[in-house]
Design a protein around this nucleic acid. Structure first.
Lengths: 175, 175
DNA sequence: CAACAATACATCGACTTCGATGTATTGCAA
DNA sequence: TTGCAATACATCGAAGTCGATGTATTGTTG
């Protein structure tokens, strides 16, 4: 998720680490903040893998700025990660939202639609957080108000997302 | 999140590891599966901390069952984690849902309400995933259909949850 | 003019998690 | 009857993440 965000932001423009950090904080920081101690090693990993390059410039600030840019391999890798997301990128909302934030960089509408369809399939499966034997329980069946809340909120999210998915898929197909 | 689920399920009844694994999978597995390689070390940690005990019984299955039970300290620790959740337990939906699944074990309605109020405060803050300068952007302002989707879905979730929170808080206060 | 926040890096050890692998038994289906 | 799925543990190394800490400069505010 962190790496996807780094690749996604750098795809849009070269940035130095501090700016990248601020953009990631704006994107997902209110939900799940990313520590600096995670960001710099992640940048290093991607650099080592040849996905980005670092150019040192005598900075306006204190330390010299390291401007980070994606390489051709890095741009290809972003597109690959967007086109072939892992299962948890589809199911985990945090990851899914991060993916959606950069899905525009996947140029082919067909490929974009294919990703949305995976999410559609996931949301269409009968699933719950709570079961009676094998049967998923509905909100109305829960006595516990807190567990009922989980199901009510999940249902509202699911409905809104299914409506949006169907509409957007129709638009993508129309062209 | 994993530790909270372990404490939560064992609070309800003593279980052996395999059963615990299945319950955790049912609760959150469709969204974010937990590897066995995470579960057993987590159980060990909690055991070492004196929060649970392990009783070996000649099992019906292959290996002998290790029945896990919470100690008094373990029960107290669950209540403490429910009453004083970390900030990300409030903001991250995965963690928040796990917390809600066990919030009934916090006996005092006052304490339950206090936790819901923290979530209410978080959801009431003006926040977005996307900004123009400092100003959070609304769904209607987004050109990118995917980013618009993120905001539309988040808004639907937020509305449903706020309605549920207000209703449940009223009930808790009414007694 | 002193203190502090913000800018701009970076590292380190501790801890957590993951994926792979291993052991052994029961029961069912091909 | 052979093999596979399910039951029921468990470990190990690799990798990732976090929180704390450190350095140095600029700009702002009291």
């Amino acid at each position: 998720m962190l790496e996807l965000a780094i690749l996604g932001f750098l795809f849009e423009a070269p940035l130095h680490g501090y700016e990248l950090r601020k953009r990631i904080a704006a994107l997902t920081g209110h939900i799940k903040p990313v520590a600096e101690g995670s960001l710099y090693p992640a940048v290093k990993r991607l650099e080592k893998a040849g996905l980005l390059t670092r150019e040192t410039r005598p900075g306006a600030g204190a330390a010299p700025r390291h401007v980070l840019s994606l390489t051709a391999a890095g741009r290809a890798e972003l597109r690959r990660r967007l086109a072939e997301p892992a299962e948890t990128d589809i199911t985990d909302e945090n990851r899914w939202f991060t993916l959606l934030a950069f899905l525009r960089h996947l140029e082919a509408p067909r490929a974009q639609a294919a990703v949305l369809e995976r999410r559609l399939a996931f949301l269409s499966e009968p699933a719950s957080f709570f079961y009676s034997g094998d049967r998923p329980l509905r909100a109305e069946e829960m006595d516990d108000p807190f567990r009922r809340g989980v199901l009510l909120i999940a249902r509202a999210t699911s409905r809104a997302e299914l409506a949006w998915l169907r509409g957007t898929l129709a638009e993508l197909r129309a062209g």
